[in-house]
Design a protein around this nucleic acid. Structure first.
Lengths: 250, 250
DNA sequence: CGAATGTTTGAAGGTGATCAAATGGGGTGG
DNA sequence: CCACCCCATTTGATCACCTTCAAACATTCG
């Protein structure tokens, strides 16, 4: 599946699978950020593209690590399972974001990655990426930035889970999504949730019922409109205030 | 302070500050892991040693990033502060563990690092470390493992905060400490907590009162003995079961 | 149309937080 | 060495937030 086949694909555009880093709209956010054209092409040559259908697994806990993945189109969730079977979503990944960095230390994937919708990823064989590092210092430096950013991101999740109340967690979640959509050129106020309420609840350390109640409350307070998975953040500024933990007198 | 001065130090052994990676008992756990003697000496040459007194700050949020730090002696805590002032401890670092990796992405420290006791760190100027990467592939590979491990560690904190009950969180915390002391050649069952109950509570997303109650409960259940900060894990196996979330009928 | 899945809403209950007070240790100065 | 104070910790009582349980409702898909 790494090489695009010649037969027509029913749902996805074949030309997208052929396209390179240079032509990818995400290259400013993604691994090739800041590379010169020639270096970008070298990187391009080691990368394979791959489709992942909704609900399909990109990799599982325990799988041998061989590649990192960059989301090209679509969204993913990654989750850990603890010994007693309960699972915890540790992140939602959007286009331009890298998956699999937690596998480097043990050579084994430490979480499951599942597509939230029909998606495409760029598969980056890690050993070949390592070969490039010695030749392209910019690439190495940016790779370190990306891993560091992942550490920072997880720290904010820890902050969220460790000392925010339910409403604050949910507002922070929405504000975060908003910013990430905006960074990709989409509306910061109108978007679709790609994950179920259950996924959101799991991620935020809350139950599905609590998520539903938070949605209803924020709707009642006039901060957002919601219809199924379509969200409109009517008052993003107010949401940001809630997300910072300001007390509201009701 | 990077160079040991010639005057006698009142509390700490000067010879310790002179010592190199090769003579450091932590070099199997730390950055130089797996390096040949010659490479270890090259790494050694860029590293400065530094003392940090209890409650002193190694770096603060917003500080310009220039060095990573390896804990040589002692322990640290790192915490984030959210906009409204509440803080959240994201980790406790022991000897051989690396601090500051979250600063690489923005060139600015993203958390505060404070010594829990009189400590020593190895200061590793990052730009000079980067120069070594191109010459010592083993070093680069190990650095990636360390960053990846930090990502994995934070994921388990997310799991802990996201779906464990108070008792389970606290048991998991003790079991984790136990394993890390054991890895350093100390007793896995008898050790001293270097942090306050308040720090533990903050880290685990619980109040100080809850931590105190958990201690009392586990003591009553015969799993541990506690006297101030001295802990004896009387029944480590049972603690591990609690940490995995098994339901106990009381 | 019916079944399955996902979502909303309500009522009751539990876990851990909050508030309050007592206890204990460690450090300082006499 | 002791008295004192300060701070950390423990313990108890009450409360609030969120969970759990339950049922109705909506949506999707065969």
């Amino acid at each position: 599946m790494n090489q695009p086949s010649l037969c027509t694909a029913p749902l996805l555009d074949i030309s997208a699978l052929r396209s390179s880093c240079s032509s990818c709209s995400m290259h400013q956010l993604c691994l090739p950020m800041g590379l010169e054209e020639a270096d970008m092409q070298r990187l391009d040559r080691i990368i394979g593209r791959r489709r992942v259908r909704r609900d399909d697994t990109l990799y599982r806990i325990g799988d041998k690590f061989s590649s990192l993945y960059a989301v090209r189109v679509g969204q993913f969730k990654t989750y850990q399972a603890n010994p007693d079977g309960a699972q915890q979503i540790t992140g939602f990944q959007m286009s331009g974001e890298l998956l699999g960095m937690d596998a480097i230390s043990t050579d084994t994937h430490q979480c499951d990655a599942v597509a939230l919708e029909d998606s495409e990823v760029c598969e980056i064989p890690f050993s070949r990426l390592e070969e490039l590092f010695s030749d392209i210092p910019t690439l190495l430096r940016h790779f370190h930035r990306i891993m560091s950013k992942e550490i920072t991101r997880e720290q904010s999740v820890i902050l969220l889970l460790g000392n925010m109340r339910a409403e604050q967690r949910f507002a922070a979640f929405l504000v975060n999504l908003s910013a990430r959509y905006a960074a990709r050129g989409y509306s910061p106020t109108n978007f679709q949730l790609r994950m179920t309420r259950e996924d959101i609840g799991n991620y935020l350390g809350l139950t599905i019922e609590s998520i539903s109640r938070m949605l209803s409350k924020l709707k009642k307070d006039g901060m957002l409109k919601v219809s199924n998975r379509d969200i409109e953040l009517v008052d993003l500024a107010a949401l940001k205030i809630v997300a910072t933990g300001a007390e509201v007198c009701n």
